[in-house]
Amino acid sequence: MVRWEPGAPERLQKAALELFATRGFEQTTTAEIAQAVGLTERTFFRHFSDKREVLFHGQQAFVQAFLDGLTAAPPEASPIEVVASALRSAAAFFPDERRPHSRARQAIIDRNPALQEREQHKLTSLATTVAEALRARGVGDLAAKLAAETGATVFGIAFTQWLREGEERSLADIAAEVLAELLELTGKAAAARGVR
Protein backbone atom coordinates (compact mmCIF):
# COMPACT_ATOMS: atom_id res chain seq x y z
CA MET A 1 0.00 0.00 0.00
CA VAL A 2 1.26 3.48 -0.90
CA ARG A 3 1.98 5.76 2.02
CA TRP A 4 0.06 9.04 1.92
CA GLU A 5 2.11 12.02 0.78
CA PRO A 6 0.97 15.64 0.73
CA GLY A 7 0.64 17.67 -2.45
CA ALA A 8 -1.34 15.16 -4.51
CA PRO A 9 -2.72 17.76 -6.98
CA GLU A 10 0.76 19.15 -7.68
CA ARG A 11 2.26 15.68 -8.07
CA LEU A 12 -0.56 14.67 -10.41
CA GLN A 13 -0.05 17.83 -12.48
CA LYS A 14 3.68 17.21 -12.78
CA ALA A 15 3.17 13.57 -13.79
CA ALA A 16 0.47 14.53 -16.28
CA LEU A 17 2.71 17.12 -17.95
CA GLU A 18 5.50 14.59 -18.29
CA LEU A 19 3.19 11.92 -19.70
CA PHE A 20 1.42 14.33 -22.06
CA ALA A 21 4.80 15.53 -23.35
CA THR A 22 6.17 12.04 -23.96
CA ARG A 23 3.06 10.04 -24.92
CA GLY A 24 0.65 12.73 -26.09
CA PHE A 25 -2.44 14.14 -24.43
CA GLU A 26 -4.94 11.83 -26.15
CA GLN A 27 -2.85 8.70 -25.52
CA THR A 28 -2.50 9.30 -21.75
CA THR A 29 -5.18 8.04 -19.37
CA THR A 30 -6.11 9.34 -15.95
CA ALA A 31 -5.22 5.93 -14.51
CA GLU A 32 -1.69 6.22 -15.93
CA ILE A 33 -1.29 9.70 -14.46
CA ALA A 34 -2.36 8.48 -11.03
CA GLN A 35 -0.17 5.37 -11.21
CA ALA A 36 2.86 7.50 -12.12
CA VAL A 37 2.76 9.03 -8.64
CA GLY A 38 1.57 5.96 -6.77
CA LEU A 39 -2.07 7.02 -6.46
CA THR A 40 -5.34 5.51 -7.58
CA GLU A 41 -7.52 6.81 -10.38
CA ARG A 42 -10.16 7.49 -7.75
CA THR A 43 -7.73 9.86 -6.02
CA PHE A 44 -7.13 11.59 -9.36
CA PHE A 45 -10.86 12.30 -9.65
CA ARG A 46 -10.96 13.72 -6.13
CA HIS A 47 -8.77 16.54 -7.39
CA PHE A 48 -9.64 16.90 -11.09
CA SER A 49 -12.86 16.30 -13.02
CA ASP A 50 -10.94 15.07 -16.08
CA LYS A 51 -7.43 15.09 -17.53
CA ARG A 52 -7.96 18.49 -19.21
CA GLU A 53 -8.44 20.03 -15.79
CA VAL A 54 -4.85 19.12 -14.91
CA LEU A 55 -3.78 21.72 -17.48
CA PHE A 56 -6.36 24.34 -16.51
CA HIS A 57 -6.33 23.95 -12.74
CA GLY A 58 -5.85 27.30 -11.01
CA GLN A 59 -8.03 29.34 -13.39
CA GLN A 60 -9.88 30.95 -10.48
CA ALA A 61 -6.64 32.11 -8.86
CA PHE A 62 -5.51 33.58 -12.20
CA VAL A 63 -8.80 35.47 -12.63
CA GLN A 64 -8.61 36.62 -9.01
CA ALA A 65 -5.12 38.03 -9.65
CA PHE A 66 -6.59 40.12 -12.48
CA LEU A 67 -9.47 41.28 -10.27
CA ASP A 68 -7.12 42.12 -7.41
CA GLY A 69 -5.20 44.43 -9.74
CA LEU A 70 -8.43 45.98 -10.90
CA THR A 71 -9.48 46.61 -7.30
CA ALA A 72 -6.07 48.10 -6.48
CA ALA A 73 -6.42 50.78 -9.18
CA PRO A 74 -7.34 54.21 -7.80
CA PRO A 75 -11.00 55.24 -8.21
CA GLU A 76 -10.09 58.03 -10.65
CA ALA A 77 -8.12 55.70 -12.96
CA SER A 78 -9.26 55.48 -16.57
CA PRO A 79 -10.48 52.07 -17.82
CA ILE A 80 -7.17 51.42 -19.58
CA GLU A 81 -5.22 52.40 -16.44
CA VAL A 82 -7.35 49.95 -14.48
CA VAL A 83 -6.53 47.26 -17.05
CA ALA A 84 -2.81 48.11 -16.75
CA SER A 85 -3.08 47.59 -12.98
CA ALA A 86 -4.86 44.26 -13.57
CA LEU A 87 -2.13 43.17 -16.01
CA ARG A 88 0.60 43.94 -13.45
CA SER A 89 -1.24 41.92 -10.82
CA ALA A 90 -1.84 38.98 -13.18
CA ALA A 91 1.81 38.99 -14.25
CA ALA A 92 2.82 38.49 -10.61
CA PHE A 93 0.90 35.18 -10.78
CA PHE A 94 3.58 34.01 -13.25
CA PRO A 95 7.00 34.50 -11.62
CA ASP A 96 10.05 33.61 -13.71
CA GLU A 97 10.55 30.29 -11.91
CA ARG A 98 7.15 29.22 -13.27
CA ARG A 99 8.22 29.74 -16.90
CA PRO A 100 9.49 26.16 -17.55
CA HIS A 101 6.21 24.68 -16.30
CA SER A 102 4.21 27.17 -18.38
CA ARG A 103 6.28 26.39 -21.48
CA ALA A 104 5.71 22.64 -21.07
CA ARG A 105 1.99 23.20 -20.52
CA GLN A 106 1.66 25.47 -23.54
CA ALA A 107 3.51 23.02 -25.80
CA ILE A 108 0.91 20.38 -24.94
CA ILE A 109 -1.96 22.81 -25.58
CA ASP A 110 -0.44 23.91 -28.90
CA ARG A 111 -0.53 20.31 -30.17
CA ASN A 112 -4.22 19.76 -29.40
CA PRO A 113 -7.01 21.82 -31.08
CA ALA A 114 -9.53 21.04 -28.32
CA LEU A 115 -7.10 22.29 -25.69
CA GLN A 116 -6.39 25.41 -27.78
CA GLU A 117 -10.11 26.09 -27.84
CA ARG A 118 -10.26 25.66 -24.07
CA GLU A 119 -7.34 28.08 -23.63
CA GLN A 120 -9.09 30.65 -25.83
CA HIS A 121 -12.28 30.19 -23.82
CA LYS A 122 -10.25 30.94 -20.68
CA LEU A 123 -9.26 34.36 -22.08
CA THR A 124 -12.80 35.06 -23.26
CA SER A 125 -14.15 34.26 -19.78
CA LEU A 126 -11.48 36.49 -18.27
CA ALA A 127 -12.54 39.40 -20.49
CA THR A 128 -16.19 38.89 -19.51
CA THR A 129 -15.32 38.90 -15.80
CA VAL A 130 -13.10 41.98 -16.13
CA ALA A 131 -15.80 43.82 -18.10
CA GLU A 132 -18.32 43.08 -15.32
CA ALA A 133 -15.88 44.40 -12.72
CA LEU A 134 -15.25 47.55 -14.77
CA ARG A 135 -19.00 48.16 -15.08
CA ALA A 136 -19.24 47.76 -11.29
CA ARG A 137 -16.68 50.60 -11.06
CA GLY A 138 -19.04 52.80 -13.10
CA VAL A 139 -17.41 52.33 -16.51
CA GLY A 140 -19.89 52.42 -19.40
CA ASP A 141 -20.73 49.18 -21.19
CA LEU A 142 -18.80 49.79 -24.41
CA ALA A 143 -15.71 51.16 -22.65
CA ALA A 144 -15.80 48.25 -20.19
CA LYS A 145 -15.97 45.69 -23.01
CA LEU A 146 -13.20 47.37 -25.01
CA ALA A 147 -10.90 47.74 -22.01
CA ALA A 148 -11.53 44.16 -20.85
CA GLU A 149 -10.98 42.66 -24.31
CA THR A 150 -7.85 44.78 -24.64
CA GLY A 151 -6.55 43.46 -21.32
CA ALA A 152 -7.17 39.84 -22.32
CA THR A 153 -5.55 40.36 -25.72
CA VAL A 154 -2.52 42.12 -24.26
CA PHE A 155 -2.13 39.36 -21.70
CA GLY A 156 -2.36 36.66 -24.37
CA ILE A 157 0.26 38.32 -26.58
CA ALA A 158 2.56 39.04 -23.64
CA PHE A 159 2.23 35.50 -22.31
CA THR A 160 3.16 34.04 -25.71
CA GLN A 161 6.25 36.25 -25.83
CA TRP A 162 7.17 35.35 -22.23
CA LEU A 163 7.16 31.66 -23.18
CA ARG A 164 9.57 32.04 -26.10
CA GLU A 165 12.89 30.24 -25.80
CA GLY A 166 15.60 32.64 -24.72
CA GLU A 167 13.14 35.21 -23.33
CA GLU A 168 14.36 36.53 -19.99
CA ARG A 169 12.15 39.57 -19.38
CA SER A 170 9.44 39.31 -16.75
CA LEU A 171 5.84 38.89 -17.82
CA ALA A 172 5.06 42.26 -16.20
CA ASP A 173 7.69 44.01 -18.35
CA ILE A 174 6.48 42.33 -21.52
CA ALA A 175 2.81 43.11 -20.77
CA ALA A 176 3.68 46.77 -20.12
CA GLU A 177 5.57 46.90 -23.43
CA VAL A 178 2.69 45.31 -25.37
CA LEU A 179 0.16 47.68 -23.80
CA ALA A 180 2.40 50.69 -24.54
CA GLU A 181 2.71 49.56 -28.16
CA LEU A 182 -1.06 49.27 -28.45
CA LEU A 183 -1.58 52.72 -26.95
CA GLU A 184 1.01 54.17 -29.33
CA LEU A 185 -0.77 52.56 -32.29
CA THR A 186 -4.16 53.89 -31.24
CA GLY A 187 -2.68 57.34 -30.59
CA LYS A 188 -1.15 57.40 -34.07
CA ALA A 189 -4.45 56.27 -35.60
CA ALA A 190 -6.30 59.04 -33.79
CA ALA A 191 -3.71 61.64 -34.88
CA ALA A 192 -3.95 60.44 -38.49
CA ARG A 193 -7.70 61.02 -38.44
CA GLY A 194 -7.27 64.38 -36.70
CA VAL A 195 -8.99 63.04 -33.58
CA ARG A 196 -7.74 64.00 -30.14
Rank of each mutant, 00 (worst) to 15 (best):
K51L: 13
I33M: 14
Q27R: 06
V130H: 09
E32V: 14
T29M: 12
T29H: 02
L182P: 00
G69F: 00
A147S: 04
T43M: 10
S85A: 09
A176R: 09
G156T: 02
E132F: 11
V83A: 12
L171M: 10
V82P: 00
R111K: 15
S102T: 09
I108L: 11
A91E: 01
P75K: 07
T29A: 11
Q35P: 13
Q161H: 04
F25K: 09
K145C: 15
E5P: 02
A143N: 07
E167Q: 05
L185Q: 09
V63M: 03
L115F: 03
A127R: 10
F56K: 14
S78L: 04
L182T: 07
W4N: 04
L134A: 01
L163G: 13
A158N: 11
F93I: 01
E10L: 03
A127W: 13
E41Y: 12
P95T: 09
T124N: 09
S102Y: 04
V139R: 08
G7D: 06
L142C: 11
G156K: 10
T40Q: 12
A34I: 11
A21G: 15
A148E: 00
F93N: 00
L183A: 13
T150G: 01
D141P: 04
F93C: 02
S102C: 10
A147C: 06
V195G: 02
R3A: 07
I157M: 13
Q161F: 11
A90R: 07
A172K: 05
E165P: 11
R193M: 12
H121Y: 03
L179F: 14
